[in-house]
Design a binder for these strands. Structure first.
Length: 359
DNA sequence: TAGACGTGGCG
DNA sequence: TCGCCAAGTCT
């Protein structure tokens, strides 16, 4: 594919491409207002790639406030990447519990075990090949830990650039234009500070709602602010209408309070998670009774709703009180619902069933 | 490539 | 209360 002509990129923007002067102004602001974060090297000090990597993985789609205690606990328990590489899977997963996106923890450990042997790659390209390290994280580590003039684009950067340039399309749909804008203002001598400065600006001044334009160091470089419409950017992609799904779930309860569960297939929604028996989720499910795990005195326990990213689900819940010796059907087992590791939608259904008065 | 993947905080 | 959001990656 041919490289895009500058005009093609610029055509996405109602404002001009940012200049190197804008990048320098941002760094001047950063030198005074930078956030003091535990994974950040002091000014003039060399960054530890392990700490940068660990923090960047934890910060994916996760707030600084949520990460702080986990970062401290991990660093205390596994001070170097070799320590983490030698850890057992279960203890790392347990230490990650509560942070969310658990694939990150699995990739973290896999990555540590690679790095423990060969060390951290010192280039963006090399970093990009590590498990759990994508376009953003590879660029961030390369810039912050190794001083590579990588173009770092995260959600903060997208927002800042969208406002600076009055970007006409949603940033993710105008990826090349965003990168071109960042590159145009990137100070080659301080790429790591520049990346962190963009993120600090996005997190503290150029916020999603109610941006503090009056105290922004880039106010006079910002096309959106000049038009008094910073909050109108970035342009949002139109929300797709959510599908409407229905389902039925069946909760047999033994006298000791255990309920019947099974494990979902590894792939697909809630892959590998524990669930209660029930129907597939679809626009129509037909007769709920067709999906019961076994014949019993099923009683309607009402319904629950749950919103997924792309579907609104309503589930009719049924309960049956069964004998202690009731056998679990193939694939199922009896579990204490409080300790079964149920995802939220399943917890809702079980809670609904158990809230029903017995008998 | 659009969708899945977790959780807690905020207006 | 509830939708939106927060330093994305993988398939």
């Amino acid at each position: 594919m041919l490289p895009e002509a500058p005009g093609e990129v610029g055509a996405e923007m109602a404002g001009p491409l940012p200049s190197p002067a804008t990048g320098r102004a941002l760094l001047a602001w950063y030198d005074v207002h930078r956030r003091d974060l535990p994974w950040r090297a002091a000014p003039g000090e060399v960054s530890d790639p392990y700490r940068v990597w660990l923090s960047e993985i934890m910060l994916q789609q996760t707030t600084v406030a949520a990460v702080r205690s986990y970062y401290a606990a991990f660093l205390d328990r596994w001070p170097r990447v070799n320590d983490l590489a030698a850890a057992e899977d279960g203890e790392v997963m347990a230490a990650w519990a509560g942070l969310g996106y658990y694939a990150r923890a699995r990739n973290l450990l896999a990555c540590a075990r690679v790095v423990a042997v060969s060390g951290f790659p010192a280039t963006r390209e090399g970093l990009r090949a590590l498990p759990g390290v994508g376009d953003y994280t590879s660029a961030a580590i390369a810039a912050i830990a190794f001083g590579e003039p990588a173009v770092v684009v995260d959600g903060n950067v997208e927002r800042v650039v969208a406002r600076l340039t009055r970007l006409a399309r949603p940033p993710k749909a105008a990826r090349r234009a965003v990168e071109a804008a960042v590159e145009a203002m990137l100070p080659a001598d301080r790429p790591g500070d520049f990346a962190q400065a963009m993120m600090d600006l996005g997190a503290t001044i150029c916020t999603p709602k109610s941006p503090a334009c009056a105290i922004c160091p880039l106010l006079h470089d910002c096309a959106a602010a000049r038009h008094g419409e910073a909050a109108a950017y970035p342009v949002k992609a139109p929300k797709k209408a959510r599908a409407v799904w229905r389902g039925a779930m069946f909760v047999p309860v033994r006298p000791d309070g255990t309920v019947l569960v099974r494990r979902r297939p590894e792939r697909g929604m809630l892959g590998g998670m524990v669930e209660v028996f029930g129907s597939p989720w679809a626009a129509e499910i037909g007769d709920a009774a067709d999906h019961a795990p076994f014949a019993a005195a099923w009683t309607a326990a009402g319904s629950i709703t749950h919103t997924f990213t792309h579907a609104d689900l309503t589930v009719d819940v049924f309960r049956a009180d069964v004998a202690a010796e009731t056998a679990a059907p193939a694939g199922g087992w009896w579990a204490d619902p409080a300790a079964a590791g149920l995802p939220t939608v399943m917890k809702k259904a079980v809670t609904r069933a158990l809230a029903m008065a017995e008998g």
